[in-house]
């Protein structure tokens, strides 16, 4: 089945054509990062305006690059939520109009399920069930996935998401944006054992990263001067180690507690090189198989939405022309 995926939940307008939920024929992403830069964060109304300007071109390019005609499309998958409602509605309205006019089935996809499905676009694909860690700028969630329609949450962050913890640290250290990428780069030259940052809530499967950020704030206060060029790599590496270690530890414990042998790690932070390495290292010891999508499919894209949509469509899921966007859509909530 050839599925067109459409994603517009935040500041990226994306469309992709995917065959059989596994083969990417095209994957187009128009980013708005530069537009929102001067505002220090995503401005919802500006994001929505950019989406409506870009979406036609992005879809046209996705079809052209895939070398398919619009009449070759057999189904449409679109991100329905969670996300910015005004932004979601652009992709959703477009997707519904296309599906109606082309006379093909439509399915709304949970953005987080989309992230999970990204792993099926890689060479190494897991079988169900698996434990999944979704880790990004907005989410840090552990769940048990029996299939994409049967997901239960095992633990999640009680305050900041892991990606948010990276962004805030990078801002405090004055090293730039996006935080996850700059810290990852800097940390490669540093030693993660130098600064003893705290690891919170070791007993639970829930996460907390606000204490970690506070300890960095206090460290900076005590010094009363910024870190030197020589010190920064070690600080970044130590901070990253504190985030990554907790993520890996709890995910593997969740696998043990649920007696699951497969673990999927996805979302923007899953592109972090230290997280990927540490998972590989620890998984080898614990006997669990870890699956992580290729780094470029970890960030928001529409191929993952098409992959998830392919699965749901094959299971017979169909959404109607009255489908609406959802700003909040907790995993495991059946609709």
């Amino acid at each position: 089945m050839i599925v067109l995926g459409i994603e517009s939940s935040c500041d990226e307008t994306a469309a992709a054509v995917v065959r059989d939920g596994t083969v990417i024929l095209s994957n187009v992403v128009a980013s708005q990062i530069e537009v929102h830069g001067p505002y220090g964060g995503v401005v919802p109304e500006i994001a929505s305006r950019k989406h409506i300007e870009a979406i036609g071109f992005v879809i046209r390019e996705a079809l052209d690059k895939a070398e398919v005609d619009r009449h070759d499309i057999e189904g449409i998958a679109v991100t329905r939520g969670p996300g910015l409602v005004g932004s979601l509605l652009v992709g959703l309205s477009m997707a519904k109009a296309l599906a109606y006019a082309l006379g093909i089935p439509l399915v709304g996809v949970n953005h987080l399920v989309g992230h999970m499905a990204a792993v099926f676009l890689g060479r190494d694909r897991p079988a169900f069930p698996f434990v999944c860690l979704i880790v990004s700028g907005g989410h840090t969630t552990l769940c048990a996935v029996r299939d994409f329609e049967d997901v239960s949450v095992l633990g999640q962050t009680r305050d900041d998401a892991a990606g948010e913890a990276f962004d805030k640290a990078a801002k405090l250290l004055g090293i730039g944006y996006p935080g996850g990428i700059v810290i990852d780069r800097l940390a490669r030259r540093g030693d993660g054992r130098v600064v003893p940052f705290p690891r919170a809530m070791r007993q639970s499967l829930d996460f907390s990263f606000s204490g970690l950020k506070t300890s960095l704030v206090n460290l900076l206060k005590r010094r009363a001067c910024p870190f030197t060029e020589e010190e920064l790599p070690d600080v970044a590496a130590s901070y990253q180690e504190a985030v990554v270690e907790v993520l890996v530890e709890k995910t593997l414990r969740a696998a043990e507690e649920t007696a699951m042998e497969r673990v999927v790690v996805c979302g923007g932070v899953a592109a972090n090189s230290r997280l990927r390495d540490l998972f590989a290292e620890r998984a080898a010891v614990s006997g669990v198989r870890v699956y992580i999508p290729p780094a470029d499919l970890c960030t928001d894209n529409a191929a993952m939405v098409a992959a998830a949509g392919d699965y749901l469509l094959r299971k017979g899921r169909r959404d109607g022309l009255d489908l609406n966007a959802l700003s909040r859509w907790p995993l495991g909530l059946a609709l």
Binding site: S48, S93, M94, A95, A97, Y100, A101
Partner: peptide, 19 residues
């Protein structure tokens, strides 16, 4: 309404592109 206008524009765009 900004959002309302975009629902209309995106829908018309989709219908026209499909047809």
């Amino acid at each position: 309404s900004f959002t309302g206008l975009r629902i209309g524009a995106a829908t018309v765009k989709g219908l026209a592109m499909a047809m």
